[in-house]
Simulated assay, not measured.
Amino acid sequence: MKPLSKNAPILMFSTEYPPQIWGGLGTHAAQLTQELSAAETHGMLVTLPAPSHEPEYEKQHSFTIYRPQLQNEEYDNSYEWMVNINLTWIKAIQSLQPSFCLVHAHDWLTAGAAIYAKRMYRIPLIATIHSLETGRKKVLKTPAEKMIHEMEKKLIKEADELIVCSNFMREEILFEEADSKKISVIHNGAVPFQKNSLGNPFISPYIFSMGRFVPEKGFEDLITAFSKIKSEHPALKLIIAGEGPGKEKYEKLAESLEVHQDVIFPGFIKGDELNRYIQYAAVACIPSRYEPFGLAALEFMAAGKPIVVSDAGGLPEMIVHNESGMIYKSSRIDDLKRSIQELLNHPEKAAVLGMKALNESKKYSWSSAANKTINLYKKSLQHM
């Protein structure tokens, strides 16, 4: 594939980039820029400063990672946080000498700076919509939630091209009056699973899940279902990796259900340690109530794990029930319980589903996602 011009790099904004990763967005940004670089696409990714004191400018292959220092780190809610970040980014790009051929925004958090850059450089704006506030919160109650929703709608309207990661998200943004002609569905990719030699982290069998500790991930449902499974599998543990505001609530729930000694929260883990937890899990589970794509589910599939997922969002687009995994009705705790028990009680079936999940995961690659993204870049530049 012919690369974009080196003399006209792309400008990308993302609030997450290694080592600052809180969820799927950070993994997406890292993998996409790596594959864009492999395709000789040059660009600058503007992101947050890192606590580990990475340099302000860092070269990652053909991308420059720019981490301007925040002007003000005090805020009362996520909307104020976003405004502060975008003002910082706008000031930062005003001092940049090179021109850019297009700007690529990742979610509402980057909308202000991206729209400014579009007008400042008079270039096309591509926006990847990873999720929506109406999906995360269902009902918008606070002024901040309503302002976030308005910013999402503004980004959808201003973008010349829109990228979503699933057909589910395509329908979501169509409901927000997105122009169907501007929407491209580009699925996330699967990174080949790397086994390690660290050994099983637990003697007992365990269910493994991971994600941000927020209501839409459905971990309360998983803990409750686990408490109902324990009588049949007394040695079983539940491991939920991640961080977020819901941790205390989950701990209290586990204690009230008298399973707190068997529910373990190892925190945010990555790399070899994460692969170790995935590798030895008896069952993997994604109990989401809202899931635009399900990158964590794809990671489990790439490891060949028997997996139980809800029917929320984009998850059923990756998995065929009873063939490459088990799908249950979101928020139906008894359905979740039965699905997990089916795999625990029938290890031969679990192994077959795990192998089929592995084969299915091979349909998703970051190189394919990057190639489709480059084609979209070229399409938008042709219309200039």
Rank of each mutant, 00 (worst) to 15 (best):
K305N: 15
S310R: 09
Q341I: 14
I340K: 00
E291Y: 15
H346L: 08
I319F: 11
P266E: 01
L353K: 04
P347V: 01
H321M: 00
A281C: 12
R289E: 04
S324K: 04
M355D: 12
G325Q: 09
D311R: 14
F268S: 08
K270R: 08
P347A: 05
K363C: 11
I307S: 10
K305F: 15
Q341E: 10
Q279R: 10
E317I: 08
D335H: 03
V283P: 00
K305L: 15
I307Y: 09
I278M: 14
A303C: 13
S361I: 12
N322S: 09
R338D: 15
E323D: 13
A297I: 03
E317Y: 07
K305E: 02
C285M: 02
L295K: 15
K305A: 11
G294T: 02
N275T: 12
D334W: 05
G271Y: 02
K270T: 15
G313W: 08
L343F: 09
K305I: 13
H321G: 05
E342V: 05
Y280R: 09
L336H: 03
A297Q: 02
S330Q: 12
Y328H: 05
E273P: 05
E360C: 11
K363G: 11
C285S: 05
F268R: 15
E323A: 03
P292F: 10
E317F: 11
M326S: 10
L315P: 09
L358N: 05
G354L: 06
Y290W: 09
A351L: 03
I286F: 09
I264K: 04
N322A: 09
R338Y: 14
V320K: 11
S339N: 04
A297V: 08
K362P: 00
S324R: 01
G271Q: 02
R338N: 15
M355T: 13
L353C: 03
S324I: 03
P306Q: 02
P287K: 06
S331H: 08
L315E: 07
K363W: 07
E342D: 12
M301E: 07
R289S: 05
P306I: 04
E299C: 14
D311K: 11
K356C: 13
V309R: 06
D335S: 15
G294L: 08
S361T: 14
A312S: 06
A282D: 04
K337N: 08
I333M: 07
S339R: 10
I327S: 14
A281E: 00
G354F: 03
I286G: 14
P287F: 00
N275K: 13
E317M: 03
K329V: 09
A297R: 04
A302K: 00
A296Y: 05
Y277R: 01
K363M: 06
F293C: 11
E273I: 13
G271L: 12
E299V: 14
Y328I: 10
V308C: 02
A350P: 00
S330K: 15
V308I: 02
A351V: 06
D272M: 08
D311I: 12
L336K: 03
P266F: 00
I319M: 01
E323S: 09
S330V: 12
P347Y: 05
M355H: 13
S310W: 12
